[in-house]
Amino acid sequence: MSLLDRRVLIVSGKGGVGKTTVAAAVALAAARSGRRTLAVEVSTQHRLARLFNAEAPEHAGEETPLYPNLMGLSIDPQRALEEYLVLALKVRVLAERLVESRAFGYVTAAAPGLKEIVTLGKVWHLSEERTRDGDPRYDLIVVDAPATGHGIGLLRTPRSFLEIARVGRVHAEARAIADFVADRSRTGILLVTLPEEMPVNETVDALGRLRESGLDADAVVVNALYLKRFAESEGDALRSLQPGGETARAAVRAALSQIARRHDQAGEVRRLGRATSVPRVELPFLFAPEVDVEAVSELAEVVGPALEGLR
């Protein structure tokens, strides 16, 4: 059983670390390995569809094909909440009336985490769906979690929600979802970070907070690492070099810049390794002007085998 054999992988992290790209690469790797995969984003922006050059679905909330074996879905939390109410109240007219009422907006604003609960609930229900033959409809669901304060808000919500909704249908649901998220045979958690001082500190912090909630990350994905292109001695040689040509001088500056950044990054990766024993997956920095399907594909080649190798 590898990490890709879990039913759900939740990709978390702060904004700006490449979370969506990593989630797309993980989903693509799973799809290429033959797993029926669903990539979920929690927004209305359809960033995943754009990454794969796929059309955004005609109707919001529809699953849309991104790649062979890979479907995409954007969950709009507000909409998910409305759907949930219809389901829970059983009377569509009543639910619709309720959703339209202004008061409903106030209840959902005041009941913190309700939207996150129904979003996770939707993912959970999707993972339970079966085809007519009784096979799971999706072998793996990869969730690009929304960036929140600590980058792990979605994961912690079910438990904190249990505190405020102590009875009722939502309570039972939140309990089931909290169990699902904490069950490491079914759900995996990936934390994405960058090999820089602040993101590393934040990741170490997030790992601690996850543990406070009885959760743990299965892997930390260190994104955008520069490859080692030059030996130490070569760096020294380049530093003392003063070529006559302007182009060569610019080239040497670029190479020295790469060496300096690579050196700092390696230090940050070592620091991360000292701070946590959670397995690390390292992804290369891509010198691609924009992240497109080719870039995602390149990362999938690295992240796929790495996750296959993790238990």
Partner: peptide, 22 residues
């Protein structure tokens, strides 16, 4: 009456304690 029905409906979903807290 309509508001009360709606109130009860929300209460049923999110639970009595949450609604009374609110």
């Amino acid at each position: 009456q309509a508001s009360l029905v709606a109130w009860r409906a929300v209460e049923k979903v999110v639970g009595v304690t949450l609604m009374s807290d609110l």
